[in-house]
């Protein structure tokens, strides 16, 4: 049973079929584009896993690098990465969140504030090697911190701070103004409003942004090379002024060696790195969900 001709005329009814076909074609194109990305990622993962899985073992994690591929391990690199990322988190997080709070809650509506905002956004896009050069000049040389874990962490902090600031600002901005109004209306000071209402509500967003920024820091190589991370380290850092290496750097140095054995252990190293990244992202998701459920 078909419907009578539409009030707009039979042309409109004929147009329907064409519309439907175009809709379907568009949906298919989108699906195809997604597949491309997914397939590429899958191919990469499969390749790496095939190469590296045989070398995954407890030994890998507990051995230092060596001239012999069979005995090489990621212990130093893993420890170095963990130290660097943890220290970066401790330095960058409070500074970035405070900056974001200032920009969103306290800064006056002035052209200078807008200028700062724009520049932070620009800084987020600066190539990481530039931060490496800055770190070398400022931390290693000028401040005399030399090639240490502290220099590396400070450099990476500068790198990811713009990203965290922007994410934190977004999260703070997302707090409804009605909540602030209500708090002010009860006689709260600006500081009380920020501490008791704005920050708790913005926290999930801030944490998510922070952890994603730290994931990026985990994968940085160039700036750390500039600041003095070395390729062959046979110890784990035990202090801020110790030398260090990180996973991406270790992987890179293995890949540059001619022996096939090193390529396999490099693939295993990639898997370890991916594992760390996945763990960090999982933590981000869990934290976000837990805070969102509390709201």
């Amino acid at each position: 049973m078909t419907l009578p001709a539409s009030g707009l005329g039979p042309d409109v009814d004929r147009h329907d079929t064409r519309r439907r076909m175009m809709g379907r074609a568009f949906a298919s194109l989108c699906a195809l584009a997604t597949c491309v990305g997914v397939v590429a990622l899958a191919v990469l993962l499969v390749d790496v896993t095939l190469d590296g899985a045989p070398r995954l073992s407890a030994d890998l994690l507990t051995s230092f690098a060596s001239r012999f591929p069979e005995r090489a391990g990621v212990k130093a690199a893993l420890a170095g990465s963990v130290w660097i990322v943890s220290l970066t988190a401790v330095i960058a997080f409070p500074l970035s969140v405070s900056a974001a709070i200032y920009l969103e809650e306290y800064a006056p509506r002035h052209w200078s504030t807008r200028a700062i905002q724009t520049n932070i956004a620009n800084l987020a896009g600066v190539p990481s090697i530039v931060y490496g050069i800055l770190g070398l000049a400022l931390f290693v040389r000028a401040l005399g911190l030399d090639r240490s874990v502290l220099s590396g962490a400070l450099t990476l902090s500068l790198l990811i701070m713009p990203v965290i600031i922007m994410a934190a600002q977004e999260a703070i901005r997302a707090v409804p103004p009605t909540i602030r109004e209500a708090a002010y209306g009860l006689g709260a000071t600006r500081w009380q409003v920020v501490r008791h209402q704005v920050l708790p509500m913005a926290l999930p967003g801030i944490l998510t942004g922070t952890i994603l920024a730290l994931s990026r820091a985990l994968g940085e190589t160039a700036p750390l090379i500039m600041v003095g991370a070395v390729g062959f380290v046979a110890f784990t850092p035990s202090g801020l002024s110790d030398q260090f290496t990180v996973l991406p750097l270790q992987i890179y140095s293995w890949v540059s060696r001619p022996q096939q054995g090193f390529h396999e252990v490099a693939a295993a190293g990639i898997l370890v790195l991916l594992g760390l990244l996945l763990t960090m992202n999982a933590v981000a998701i869990v934290l976000r969900n837990r805070y969102r459920a509390r709201l």
Partner: peptide, 11 residues
């Protein structure tokens, strides 16, 4: 004190 148009309890 003030009560607003849309209820705005804290989370």
């Amino acid at each position: 004190g003030m009560v607003f148009q849309k209820p705005n309890p804290f989370p």
